[in-house]
């Protein structure tokens, strides 16, 4: 078995109804992994930008890129892993903030450079951005019993410097 690696694929597609299901359908029909998928319109409202986090051998990733390019609604595809890139994900975590937890949570939040964006009697809501691994590390470092709820956006990625994905 060829070794598998995590890849972040960025793509621009027509901002049309059904375009998302074409991409999602492709992944399920061909049995490719999706770790996360994010999508939103770009500054050009006719285009949407999607970031897909997937994993596979080099051959599988090559096929994924080719199959994505084959979709009529897909305008451009870039495997961010082909060069230098930045990856960010947003997470909101609601944690117990009673008694000793209250100080502890504030301290952890500072260490990870998060922000408390909602304060209630018994809870804080913390906003944290970073790579997926940083967000994982934050969750790991918390007392499990203190976590009330988490929500993550999935990764967004962008190439460094001159690497630009544009029509």
């Amino acid at each position: 078995m060829a070794s598998t690696a995590r890849h972040i694929i960025s793509l621009l597609m027509e901002n049309e109804s059904g375009a998302l299901s074409r991409v999602a359908g492709l992944f399920s029909a061909r049995g490719y992994n999706i770790e996360s998928l994010t999508v939103a319109p770009t500054e050009d409202p006719t285009l949407s930008r999607m970031t897909i986090v997937t994993s596979g051998s080099d051959e599988v990733i090559e096929q994924i890129i080719k199959q994505l390019n084959k979709l009529i609604d897909v305008v451009k595809v870039l495997d961010l892993n082909d060069g230098k890139f930045i990856e960010r994900e947003l997470m909101l975590v609601k944690v117990k903030a009673t008694g000793t937890f209250r100080e502890e949570m504030k301290r952890m939040c500072d260490i990870f450079r998060g922000r408390i964006i909602d304060v209630a009697d018994g809870s804080f809501t913390i906003e944290l951005t970073g790579s997926g691994t940083k967000l994982d590390a934050f969750i790991e470092s918390l007392d499990k019993s203190a976590i009330l709820e988490t929500v993550r956006t999935g990764a967004s990625g962008i190439g460094r410097g001159d690497r630009i994905l544009k029509v």
């Binding site: 051959e59 090559e62 096929q63 084959k70």
Partner: peptide, 11 residues
Amino acid sequence: IDPSSISKRVK
């Protein structure tokens, strides 16, 4: 004509 046919099953 289809790039995805190339190296799909055989390198």
